[in-house]
Nucleic acid binder design. Structure first.
Length: 275
DNA sequence: ACCCGTGTTCGCTG
DNA sequence: TCAGCGAACACGGG
């Protein structure tokens, strides 16, 4: 369930699990070719096997692995898409359902990339030259790593006529912000998600910047644990407004939360608190 | 059967 | 060139 917070947890897990480990064998499901584009499952297997995991970095929703082999570094760019997840299993345990790729480590564990819906991506980056990858060039500064500069955010929003909730999901503006965080951030900031981005004043932009960081920190705090545990089946919805259409607003406790569709995605908001 | 979904990309339009 | 829009991608779950 990957937005910034989930990917950050994934990065922390992967560092704890894999840093310094040698990948004795990499495997990929031939049937999951879609995940490895551009590239093939075969190439994935052949190139990664034998490398050591040197670092795992996160920018927005992207995971940047740097692997070290005999003939220099190799990058692995991983995106979880809608349903991607990294899991760790002991050697010999059955692979998780929908496992698309596996990294057998030299400590008796196997890292599985599980992705039922196949919107995830695993992409090799020769020489780990991530600076040459187009999707990464287009990303803005990571909110968690660099903070959010209200002046920069204001300037970016000023150019947009799109609704503010849609604009803040632009990965060139706030990488890592997805559909949930966007709704949550607008709610926390008391800003109507339908407002054209360019109509926000300086005070509102500053409040929005702060709200995004708070929503991210809250989400990370909730999820820390051995694995990504997140709105697991039967778990309680941890969000303030997301997926709470019809429920009473947790702030004003008077209006009922509403749902609307923006840019083909659901938005949740309080019609009374968000101006 | 139908609708929904935590994401990105591509093609088209103004 | 850029902003905006809708479709497409693939598939499980309610």
């Amino acid at each position: 369930m990957p937005e910034l917070a989930e990917v950050e947890i994934a990065a922390r897990n992967l560092r704890a699990w894999a840093l310094g480990r040698r990948i004795e064998r990499a495997e990929a499901e031939p049937s999951a070719a879609y995940v490895f584009r551009p590239g093939t499952p075969k190439r994935f297997t052949a190139q990664i096997t034998g490398h050591r995991v040197e670092s795992v970095r996160r920018i927005g929703k992207q995971l940047l692995w740097t692997l070290r082999g005999d003939d220099g570094p190799l990058g692995l760019l991983a995106h979880l898409g809608m349903t991607g997840k990294w899991l760790r299993r002991e050697k010999g345990q059955p692979a998780p359902e929908y496992g698309k790729a596996r990294l057998h480590l030299d400590d008796g564990h196997v890292l599985h990339f599980r992705d039922p819906r196949l919107f995830g991506r695993l992409r090799l980056v020769p020489g780990a030259r991530f600076e040459e990858v187009d999707e990464l060039k287009e990303l803005g500064p990571d909110p968690l790593e660099a903070g959010i500069d209200p002046a920069r955010l204001g300037a970016a929003l000023a150019r947009r006529r799109a609704p503010v909730k849609v604009a803040i999901m632009d990965q060139g503006i706030l990488p890592g912000v997805g559909n949930i965080l966007a709704s949550e951030s607008c709610f926390r900031a008391g800003i109507d998600p339908r407002r054209p981005a360019a109509t926000l004043g300086g005070v509102e932009v500053a409040r929005l910047a702060q709200s995004v960081l708070e929503a991210v920190h809250d989400a990370i705090t909730r999820q820390e644990g051995p694995e990504i545990a997140y709105v697991e089946e039967g778990g309680e919805n941890p969000f303030l407004v997301y997926a709470r259409e019809g429920e009473r607003c947790p702030r004003c406790k008077r209006a009922d939360l509403r749902r609307l569709v923006q840019a083909q995605r659901s938005t949740f908001y309080c019609p009374r608190c968000q101006k």
